[in-house]
Amino acid sequence: MSCPMSICASAALPAILLLLSPLFGGLLAGVDRKLTARMQNRKGPPLTQPFWDIFKLLGKQSMVSNPAQILFAIGYLGFMILALGVFFWGGDLLAIVFLTTFASVCLVLGAFSVRSPYAYIGGQRELLQLASFEPVLIAAVAAIYLKTNTFLVSGIHGGLMPYLIPSLLALWMVLPIKMRKSPFDIATAHQEVVKGPFTEYSGAYYAVILVGEWLELLLVLLIITLFVANPWLKVLIFVGSLVGELLLDNACARLNWKWLLRYSWAIALPMAVIGIMVSSDVFRALINALSAYIYIGG
């Protein structure tokens, strides 16, 4: 209250970040394509390629299957922008998780609103991806809460690391599911279900979806940076997650949906639950009691 200038400044920085995020997300997508090309021993497109794609799509003839489709495309992007905004303003992590879920649900509804069988299958697979990714993300957020006693992004400071390693591992495990990359690119499986939930979008509305995807990638990577405190470590973990993910993408073939569920519910989810246990006080009290018991008993 004492200094209105500082309040202005603290509101302006997140706004600038939010405005710049499509630019940054597009560059991330460009880096993704370039690195993928280099890993396959190709030259690859220029870094600015994703932006050219968007410009071109904006100029395409408009062909929509139904008006609901437009609503869901804009809903997807809108919820993503909201989630990113909440993040930059240091808001509630739980709200971010739910907003991204709404965004994915928009995608599924958009896929179900048309009559293309490819979009249908893609929508159902997108739901499966959601069911695999979301519990792990919520468990990771819960673990962060247990360590810091707050869901606010602005309230999370460093020193979380040793207790949150299982949660981080679990998040890394499900990262390819969220990024729709091999081995779990089952929703948008090209050459198999054409482009899954995106099949029926064209022109400007496909551009909207693409920008939404960039923001989604950016947001997930940003959530991962919350686990470390040091700014350099943040950058390292951001870049490391992306590069590791691309390596995996290029080294793996696509698995089917049964493998997706087995993997996420039998490996990643238990890991996330261990993450919650390790970071909860009850668990530590139990361990202490147990060790005291063994000590006395011995």
């Binding site: 190709r42 690859g44 390629q49 482009k195 099949t199 029926e200 979008y201």
Partner: peptide
């Protein structure tokens, strides 16, 4: 990789809408 048309931004989409 030998010809790599993605250099020019060409992508094989397999979808008439794109």
């Amino acid at each position: 990789p030998k010809f790599d048309v993605e250099r020019f931004g060409i992508l094989n989409k397999g979808n008439p809408k794109h």
